[in-house]
Amino acid sequence: MSSIEELKSLATQVRRDVLRMVHAVNSGHPGGSLGCTDFFVALFNVIMDHDPKNFTMDGVGQDIFFLSNGHLSPVWYSVLAHSGYFPIKELCTFRKLNSRLQGHPATAEHLPGIRIASGSLGQGLSVGIGAAIAKKLNKDDKLVYTLHGDGELQEGQIWEAAMFASAKKIDNLISTIDYNGKQIDGPTEKINSLGNLKLKFSAFDWDVLEMNGNDIEEVIQTLKIAKAHTGKGKPVVIIMKTEMGFGVDFMMGTHKWHGVAPNDEQLAKALAQLPETIGDY
């Protein structure tokens, strides 16, 4: 998987998967998943050095990823499946009884690709730092990636971790913030404004990059720059501007689709905007 056209085609299929998964169980979080689809597709298909067919919990010798905002599980599961971590057809079990695809990512069911439970927000940066320290102790030069919601940054633990990561020079870590400006109750600006996020991370002594998360070429380019910035004594953060609900016109420009599944009619309308490419699960 390398050409931009192929990646875009995969992204369209992943967005279809996300919508169909949440529709099937009338629950889940489509908005952020759609907004971050291009990021996931780029990260897992172009950027990360990983071996989906041989998943190991310790991830030694591989890049590893942690989803701190665990409610984006639909997009992660779809991308994991399309990368070869587990059968694509298993996506139909999402959020159902006895499934490995729990509502929020979990390890108890041993789904390949998942290394820790997430969902209760604010914990993934600390976990990523721990995994990054373990890589250093193991003399493993591969990287740790984390993704966080912007609303999630209201959790205090994030800033405990942000302070620690620069103080201890955790420079094998690339964290990305899904900066879509929306959370369940409304615009982040109104709920509890993040203020100048770039300045905040700069003040915490992180190496700060920015990108448009819905332009897959820019995502790839920026992630490559981020990789080049590792190993220089600072943790790297990418403030990724995205549109919640990207790819479906009526799901964009509102926080309404953060955690609501489309009904039959809405699903049909949404899928019409995202024609099947690789094939539905």
Binding site: M57, D58, G59, V60, I64, F66, R115, I116, G122, Q123, G124, L125, S126, V127, G128, I129, G130, A131, A132, I133, A134, K135, L137, N138, D140, G156, Q157, E160, A161, M163, F164
Partner: peptide, 17 residues
């Protein structure tokens, strides 16, 4: 920063520590 400490500890186990 005890919350961070617990998270880091969990992350360390992933690398076999």
């Amino acid at each position: 920063a005890e919350a961070n400490m617990i998270g880091i500890a969990a992350g360390l186990t992933i690398g076999g520590k």
